[in-house]
Design a binder for these strands. Structure first.
Length: 289
DNA sequence: TTGAAGAGGGCGCTTACGTCA
DNA sequence: GTTGACGTAAGCGCCCTCTTC
């Protein structure tokens, strides 16, 4: 199953140099409201879609339920007792509250578990946890439901549980684990992307280092200095950033380029020795515009 | 209006079980 | 038949939000 990256809410944008083939965009901000803020999910359409699902899948569910051996169909009592109330704001009250389920109905819970696994109380006397495996059909329906909405409100949970012949708690757990798997998968994908990012940046860094070395070598080579005046006399036009050397050609070029007399009353001096300290520059003879 | 308490849900971590090579 | 790796259902604790008082 392919999942959209947005589902996880991770996003990162990295700008690469122009020669970088594929700029990377990771989504660190969720565009999926249900994961970004699960409590703010609108359940109205979610539940209608669930109803649609229920309609389309009911027959299918009935047919495959015959093949389920580890689960039993929940008795009407199960659903009735769990079909508790929903507050108007929907997400608050639950039909299978975690604490109440564990603390208040601890004994019932065990019995329920044993029952849902087709294990009698006598067989499940000890507290050992027997794990059931959901059938393919059950998993498929849960997957379909998860595609529609990755969280469930109590009514949806109940309906789905009833449809699948599972306890609401099982549906709840399945969705929790499914969300966790989705997140893990997306994290792995993002990790891979970041790894490629890192490799690209390392390569770019290596390339730039090499370029710097080449430039330094060129800078220190005798041929380079043959055409240069002493280092402190280099002057750069702050407008066009052209380095003016006291050769006649350069002067001509600078002169031809523009009228520096008006445009650049104070040209900058630069040093090829990369000194950042201000360098007293020679009289402004190179830019005789 | 504000704050405490309780309820409920989600998530992270973990365990235990089922499956398969 | 045994074993180790892997997938996953489920338990537990914590945190957050919302409601109630």
């Amino acid at each position: 199953m392919m999942l959209e990256k947005e589902d996880l809410g991770l996003s990162l944008s990295l700008n690469f140099p122009q020669n970088t083939p594929n700029p990377v965009h990771l989504n660190l901000m969720s565009s999926s409201p249900s994961l970004c803020n699960p409590h703010k999910t609108s359940w109205n359409d979610a539940f209608t879609s669930s109803d649609r699902n229920s309609e389309t899948c009911r027959g299918e569910a009935r047919s495959f339920l015959r093949g389920i051996d580890v689960n039993r169909l929940p008795s009407p009592v199960d659903c009735e007792e769990e079909a508790g109330v929903s507050s108007p704001n929907s997400t608050v009250s639950s039909v299978s509250g975690k604490r109440s389920e564990r603390e208040i109905n601890g004994a019932d819970h065990d019995a329920d578990r044993a029952c849902s696994q087709g294990i009698s109380d006598e067989e499940d006397g000890e507290t050992s946890r027997k794990k059931l495996r959901l059938s393919k059909d059950q998993s498929a329906i849960l997957e379909e439901s998860f595609k529609e909405h990755n969280t469930l409100n109590p009514k949806q949970k109940l309906a789905l549980a009833k449809q699948l012949g599972l306890r609401p708690r099982q549906v709840e757990v399945w969705f929790q684990n499914r969300r966790a798997r989705t997140k893990l998968k997306q994290t792995e994908v993002d990790c891979e992307v970041l790894k490629r990012c890192c490799e690209n940046l390392t390569e770019e860094n290596r390339r730039l280092q090499k370029e710097v070395q080449e430039l330094r070598a060129l800078k220190l080579s005798p041929q380079f200095y043959m055409q240069m005046t002493p280092p402190t006399t280099l002057t750069m036009c702050p407008s066009c950033e052209r380095v003016a050397v006291p050769s006649s050609a350069a002067v001509d070029t600078a002169t031809r380029h523009h009228s520096m007399a008006q445009a650049h009353p104070r040209p900058m001096s630069i040093s090829p020795w990369a000194s950042t300290a201000p360098i007293p520059h020679r009289p402004f003879d190179a830019f005789r515009h």
